[in-house]
Simulated assay, not measured.
Amino acid sequence: MGIVASAKRIMRLMTRHGLVPLSRSAKRYSSYKGEPAKAPKNLADRDFHAEAPNRLWVTDLTEFSIPAGKAYLSPVIDCYDGLPVAWTIGMSPNADLANGMLADACSTLKDGGKPIIHSDRGCHYRWPGWIRICKEHGLTRSMSAKGCSPDDAAAEGFFGRLKQEFFHKRSFAGVTMDEFIGMLDEYMVWYRDRRIKTEFGTGIMDRRRGLGLVA
């Protein structure tokens, strides 16, 4: 009707008259497909702190929906300082996406590095390929309780920051899937190498260099 009003005024009027907006909540991607076999114990037990690198890793999959289609990110995060150790991005949340990420992460381990790898109960982390990679590199598997997101809070928190900084309130109209995947990969590299972490007052990699953990 051409009437301009502030959002706060609209909210007050709606509250006064008992009006509720019709909205569609975003659907969170879930890879849970039931219980194919007995799950490992939850060794993390919601304590996502580690005294040194490569003691405790967390992983999960998240979905990005843009006009051109859907993309999926599979990272592994080191609970020592939040470093994205490795990640894969693809257009299908399949076993290759998760297994490729884990293999890349394991390739960074030095002799004696055998972290706990904590995940939710997604099917990707129950399939033979994932279990084989864990056994080959001496990783200990840990899993959340069924449908309990606080058990995977470290991964959820990472995705929350990522989407707040990179994805939400941003238009990807006209962006192809290849372009989007490239943009997301660039963000992940920036997050790992340059993003300032308030807790440290510097970037994660710069802090590791200062501690002599990386060259």
Rank of each mutant, 00 (worst) to 15 (best):
G129H: 09
A95L: 13
A86R: 01
A155I: 05
S149M: 06
A103P: 00
G160P: 08
P128T: 09
P84V: 13
D60H: 03
L61Y: 00
R121H: 13
G82H: 08
S144M: 06
M143K: 07
G113F: 03
V85Q: 05
Y125I: 08
A103H: 07
I116P: 01
M91H: 12
D120M: 07
L162E: 08
I116D: 02
P128I: 12
N94C: 12
V76H: 00
T140F: 00
N99T: 14
W127P: 04
C148K: 12
L61E: 00
P67S: 11
G69T: 08
S92G: 02
K110F: 07
L61R: 00
D151A: 07
V76S: 00
T140A: 12
I116K: 02
G138V: 09
N94H: 13
E156P: 02
C148R: 11
S149N: 09
F64I: 11
G69E: 06
A155H: 01
S74Y: 00
T59E: 00
M143I: 10
A103K: 14
I77F: 02
T62K: 03
W87N: 01
R141L: 14
N94F: 10
W127F: 13
W57A: 02
S142M: 09
P75D: 03
T62W: 08
D104A: 15
G160N: 12
E156T: 07
K114L: 03
P128W: 13
D152Q: 12
C148Y: 12
S65H: 14
K135G: 13
D104Q: 15
Y125G: 04
E156W: 07
A86V: 04
C79L: 12
R132C: 10
G138L: 12
M143W: 05
Y72V: 08
P128C: 10
G157M: 04
A105E: 01
R121E: 07
S142K: 04
P150F: 06
A145C: 14
P93V: 02
L83V: 05
L109S: 07
T140K: 10
D60G: 01
G113A: 15
Y125P: 02
D120K: 05
E136F: 01
P150I: 04
E156V: 04
D104Y: 00
I77D: 01
L83F: 04
L83M: 11
H137L: 07
G113C: 14
S149K: 12
P75E: 01
I133G: 06
M143C: 10
A86H: 06
A145Q: 15
G157R: 05
K135S: 15
H137S: 03
A153M: 01
K110M: 13
L73P: 02
G82L: 04
S107Y: 08
G113H: 14
G147H: 10
C134A: 15
Y80C: 11
A68I: 03
A155T: 06
V76C: 00
D120H: 06
W130Q: 02
D151G: 11
G157V: 04
G112Y: 10
S74G: 09
H118G: 04
I77P: 00
F159V: 07
P75S: 09
A86I: 01
F159C: 06
Y72P: 01
Y125V: 07
G138A: 09
T59A: 11
A155Y: 00
F64N: 03
M91V: 13
D60K: 01
K70H: 11
A68G: 09
G112I: 11
K146R: 15
T62A: 06
A103G: 02
N94R: 10
I117F: 11
H137T: 01
